[in-house]
């Protein structure tokens, strides 16, 4: 464990908590893409199947349980409890265009052709594009509530911090995982235009408005 990875995990934790607070406090999931949340739930389920077979640390297990529970809980809140506030009309990104290519790629490009490893690889590839429906929805509505933009900033920062973790681990531990690194870079790059808008607008107290 290193400071970059811990900061990344905490940023990820913060993002999920911010989202839950937004939905619970406003009792609405307006502006949130349910499709992205479904993809995140799939990411965690396929990645954390080793929850019971492979103990790494109490921290690792606790975070996996929280990420699994909160992502499934968020899908429940969006599609059942606060279903009436879910914005179907703007959440239209075709997620099959994300699921199929990542599934095929995980069968072709992986570290080991075993069930667990292919599911882990699929989860890594899927996570790198899972935010696209959300970013697409923000571009369609042309704006986002400030709490939603804080959620996106924390979520985008988490994998950016992981890139620093991978640099650290390469130089100090001689460890690197090219699949996680490439996917992590793609994932972080997808947030770049949002990061620009967030830093130039939201941090100045303005609302996140995309140029129409």
């Amino acid at each position: 464990m290193n400071i970059f990875r811990l900061a990344g995990d905490l940023s990820h934790l913060a993002a999920i908590i911010i989202l839950l607070i937004k939905i619970w406090k406003t009792r609405s999931c307006a502006g949130i893409s349910g499709r992205s949340q479904v993809l995140f739930a799939i990411v965690f389920i396929t990645r954390y199947l080793d929850l019971f077979t492979n103990f790494i640390s109490a921290y690792n297990t606790a975070m996996k349980v929280f990420f699994l529970g909160s992502s499934i809980g968020t899908v429940y809140l969006m599609y059942l409890k606060f279903k009436a506030t879910y914005d179907h009309n703007h959440d239209t990104f075709r997620i099959e265009f994300l699921l199929l290519p990542t599934a095929l790629l995980s069968l072709v490009l992986n570290h080991e052709f075993s069930v667990m490893e292919i599911l882990w690889t699929f989860s890594i590839y899927l996570e790198s594009v899972a935010i696209l429906p959300q970013l697409f929805m923000v571009s369609k509505t042309g704006e986002a509530e400030s709490i939603t933009s804080h959620y996106l900033f924390a979520l985008g920062s988490y994998r950016g911090l992981y890139i620093l973790n991978w640099i650290y681990r390469y130089y100090f531990e001689g460890f690197y995982d090219i699949i996680a690194i490439v996917a992590g870079c793609v994932q972080t790059i997808l947030y770049c235009d949002f990061f620009y808008l967030y830093i130039t607008k939201v941090l100045k107290g303005k609302k996140l408005q995309l140029p129409a």
Partner: peptide
Amino acid sequence: NIFGDSHDEL
């Protein structure tokens, strides 16, 4: 472990 080598990152 029994399910192939482990990934220690979240």
